[in-house]
Amino acid sequence: MPSEAAVFAALGDETRLALVEQLRSGPASIVTLTGKADMSRQAITKHLHVLEKAGLVTHLRIGRTTVWQLERPKFDNARHYLDIISRQWEGALERLRGHVEA
């Protein structure tokens, strides 16, 4: 599934995972998000745009401030996809165990 690939690719970076973790508690401005990072605002913004392109975050402008927030449905879709894969693996392992024990 191509959209899941984009999601997992976007989450495959330590900085982007840290940004997602920060946004779990609610929307945050770029100032707040860069305050906890050892990176420039420009670098953090690039990471946020990767997350946005994957559909994981959105932003809105409030005056001169940009506020970022998680798109929870995209995370739910990714979790559902992982659940499907997990069930497939569990089934394959059960079949293998049955074959080995037979």
Rank of each mutant, 00 (worst) to 15 (best):
P2N: 15
P2I: 08
S3C: 11
E4A: 11
E4P: 00
A5G: 12
A6D: 15
A6E: 15
A6R: 14
V7S: 09
V7Q: 10
F8S: 12
F8P: 02
A9M: 12
A9W: 15
A10C: 05
A10R: 06
A10W: 07
L11Y: 10
G12W: 08
D13P: 00
D13E: 10
E14A: 09
E14G: 01
R16P: 02
R16L: 04
L17Q: 13
L17H: 05
A18Y: 04
L19C: 04
L19Y: 04
L19E: 03
V20I: 07
Q22K: 06
L23N: 04
R24S: 12
S25H: 09
S25I: 03
G26D: 04
G26E: 04
A28F: 07
A28I: 03
A28M: 13
S29Q: 09
V31W: 11
V31L: 11
T32P: 00
L33Q: 10
L33Y: 08
T34W: 11
T34N: 09
T34I: 02
T34S: 13
T34V: 06
G35Q: 14
K36N: 07
K36G: 05
K36C: 02
A37Q: 10
D38C: 05
M39S: 03
M39L: 12
S40W: 13
S40D: 12
R41V: 02
Q42D: 15
Q42G: 00
A43G: 00
A43F: 10
A43E: 14
A43Y: 08
I44V: 14
T45N: 11
T45H: 14
T45E: 14
K46T: 13
K46R: 15
K46Q: 13
K46H: 14
K46Y: 15
H47K: 11
H47C: 11
H47M: 01
L48Y: 13
L48F: 12
H49R: 12
H49L: 14
H49D: 12
H49M: 09
V50T: 13
V50F: 09
L51Y: 10
L51W: 07
L51D: 06
E52C: 02
E52F: 03
E52R: 07
E52Y: 05
K53N: 01
K53G: 00
K53R: 12
A54E: 01
A54S: 05
G55E: 02
V57W: 07
V57R: 03
T58D: 13
T58Y: 13
H59N: 10
H59L: 02
L60G: 08
R61L: 09
R61H: 13
I62D: 15
I62A: 15
G63A: 07
G63R: 07
R64F: 08
R64M: 12
R64N: 13
R64A: 14
T65Y: 11
T66V: 10
T66D: 11
V67R: 10
V67T: 01
V67Y: 10
W68V: 00
W68H: 06
W68E: 08
W68C: 00
Q69P: 00
Q69M: 08
L70R: 09
L70Y: 09
E71V: 07
E71H: 01
E71Q: 11
E71C: 00
R72I: 06
P73L: 09
P73S: 11
F75P: 02
D76L: 01
D76H: 06
D76N: 03
N77K: 04
A78P: 01
A78L: 01
A78N: 03
A78R: 02
H80W: 03
H80L: 01
H80D: 06
Y81D: 06
Y81T: 02
L82P: 03
D83Q: 06
D83C: 00
I85P: 02
